[in-house]
Amino acid sequence: MDVFMKGLSKAKEGVVAAAEKTKQGVAEAAGKTKEGVLYVGSKTKEGVVHGVATVAEKTKEQVTNVGGAVVTGVTAVAQKTVEGAGSIAAATGFVKKDQLGKNEEGAPQEGILEDMPVDPDNEAYEMPSEEGYQDYEPEA
């Protein structure tokens, strides 16, 4: 019985440690998101679009440190934060509304985080759909 109880105690310690790591990862992701939003706020009209992409990228980098179902929630929060940063930029006159959601080359930025393969159960990952990809044929 002692062996059984000791095993359960060790398992509990492992769960607590994993929860603490997840909590730490979420806190880091939130900190990076805040950094990115402050970065966007300090940019001029020309830099705002690039700044919004930076927020998304920093958040995406930190999301990889967070495991399990938390990833889905962090990704949703990050996307809403990026959308909010863009709205703030438009409201303050840093950028025109028609410039939001495009990178410096004018290509749409939507789907940055949505296409990231995420499995809350950590069982399997699927690649994003290939609808947006084109076949590449090298020139002879």
Rank of each mutant, 00 (worst) to 15 (best):
M1R: 15
M1P: 15
D2A: 00
D2E: 15
V3D: 09
F4Q: 00
F4C: 02
F4G: 00
M5I: 15
K6H: 12
K6C: 14
K6V: 14
K6W: 15
K6Q: 15
G7N: 07
G7V: 07
G7R: 15
G7D: 01
G7S: 10
G7A: 15
L8R: 00
S9I: 11
S9R: 05
S9H: 10
K10P: 00
K10T: 08
K10Q: 12
A11T: 03
A11V: 15
A11E: 00
K12H: 09
K12T: 06
E13D: 11
E13N: 04
E13C: 06
E13Y: 05
G14E: 11
G14R: 08
G14T: 11
G14Q: 11
G14W: 15
V15R: 00
V15E: 00
V16Q: 10
A17Q: 03
A17E: 03
A17Y: 08
A17G: 04
A19G: 05
A19V: 15
A19R: 04
E20Y: 07
E20V: 14
K21W: 14
K21L: 11
T22D: 00
T22I: 12
T22S: 03
K23H: 03
K23Q: 05
K23A: 13
K23P: 00
K23G: 09
Q24T: 09
Q24P: 00
Q24H: 08
Q24N: 02
G25T: 06
G25F: 15
G25S: 14
G25H: 05
V26D: 00
V26C: 06
V26K: 00
V26L: 13
V26P: 00
V26S: 00
E28N: 06
E28V: 11
A29K: 03
A29V: 07
A30E: 00
A30L: 11
A30T: 08
G31S: 05
G31L: 11
G31H: 15
K32N: 09
K32S: 02
T33M: 05
T33K: 00
T33W: 15
K34P: 00
K34V: 12
E35D: 07
E35P: 01
G36M: 11
G36P: 00
G36E: 03
V37G: 01
V37I: 12
L38A: 12
L38K: 02
Y39R: 06
Y39F: 12
V40S: 01
V40P: 00
V40I: 10
G41S: 05
G41N: 04
G41F: 12
S42D: 02
K43W: 05
K43T: 03
K43V: 11
K43G: 01
T44Q: 01
T44C: 10
T44H: 01
T44P: 00
K45H: 14
K45A: 12
E46K: 03
E46H: 05
G47F: 14
G47D: 06
V48S: 00
V49S: 09
H50Y: 11
H50G: 10
H50L: 11
G51Q: 12
G51V: 14
G51Y: 11
G51P: 01
V52M: 07
V52R: 01
V52E: 00
V52I: 12
V52H: 01
A53T: 04
A53R: 07
A53Q: 10
A53Y: 01
A53S: 02
A53E: 06
A53M: 12
T54S: 01
T54C: 12
V55Q: 00
V55T: 02
V55W: 13
A56S: 05
A56D: 01
E57R: 08
E57Y: 04
K58A: 04
K58P: 01
T59A: 14
T59L: 15
T59Q: 01
T59S: 06
T59D: 00
K60N: 08
K60E: 02
E61W: 08
E61L: 12
Q62K: 07
V63D: 01
V63P: 01
V63R: 02
T64Q: 09
T64N: 06
N65L: 08
N65R: 09
V66M: 12
G67A: 11
G68F: 15
G68K: 08
A69M: 08
A69Q: 08
A69G: 06
V70P: 05
V70R: 01
V71I: 07
V71F: 10
V71K: 04
T72Y: 02
T72E: 08
G73T: 08
G73Y: 14
V74E: 01
V74L: 09
T75Q: 07
T75I: 11
T75M: 05
A76C: 10
A76R: 04
A76H: 10
A76E: 09
A76V: 07
V77D: 01
V77H: 00
Q79T: 13
Q79H: 12
Q79Y: 08
K80S: 06
K80H: 09
K80A: 06
K80Q: 08
T81D: 02
T81R: 03
T81C: 10
T81K: 01
V82M: 08
E83H: 03
E83F: 03
E83D: 05
E83T: 07
G84R: 09
G84H: 10
G84I: 11
G84V: 12
G84L: 12
A85K: 01
A85L: 14
G86L: 07
G86V: 06
G86N: 12
S87A: 10
I88G: 01
A89P: 01
A89C: 13
A89V: 09
A89R: 07
A90L: 05
A90E: 13
A91V: 10
A91F: 11
A91G: 03
T92H: 12
T92Y: 15
T92E: 08
T92G: 11
G93L: 09
G93R: 08
F94P: 04
F94E: 02
F94G: 03
F94Q: 04
V95Y: 07
V95C: 03
V95T: 07
V95K: 13
V95R: 02
K96A: 07
K96M: 06
K96E: 12
K97C: 07
K97P: 10
K97A: 05
D98N: 15
D98M: 05
Q99K: 06
Q99E: 12
Q99F: 03
Q99S: 04
L100G: 13
L100H: 07
G101T: 08
G101Y: 14
N103P: 04
N103V: 11
N103S: 07
E104K: 01
E104W: 03
E105I: 01
G106A: 08
G106T: 11
G106Y: 14
A107C: 07
A107N: 15
A107S: 10
P108T: 12
P108Q: 13
Q109A: 02
Q109H: 04
Q109D: 12
E110P: 10
E110N: 10
E110H: 01
E110I: 03
E110G: 13
G111V: 15
G111K: 12
I112G: 06
I112E: 03
I112S: 13
L113P: 13
L113V: 10
L113C: 07
E114G: 08
E114N: 08
E114I: 13
E114F: 05
M116H: 07
M116K: 08
P117I: 09
V118M: 03
V118H: 08
D119G: 13
D119L: 08
D119C: 12
D119E: 06
D119W: 06
D119H: 05
P120G: 10
P120R: 12
D121L: 06
D121F: 08
N122I: 10
E123P: 09
E123D: 12
E123F: 04
A124E: 11
A124R: 05
Y125E: 07
Y125T: 07
Y125W: 13
E126C: 05
M127K: 07
M127P: 07
P128N: 07
P128F: 04
P128L: 08
P128W: 13
S129F: 04
S129N: 05
E130N: 09
E131D: 13
E131S: 12
E131G: 14
G132P: 13
Y133H: 08
Y133D: 05
Y133W: 07
Q134E: 14
Q134V: 05
Q134T: 02
Q134W: 14
Q134R: 09
D135K: 05
D135W: 09
D135Y: 04
Y136N: 11
Y136P: 08
Y136G: 01
E137C: 08
E137D: 04
P138L: 02
E139Y: 09
E139V: 09
E139A: 09
E139P: 09
E139H: 13
E139N: 08
A140T: 06
A140Q: 03
A140I: 05
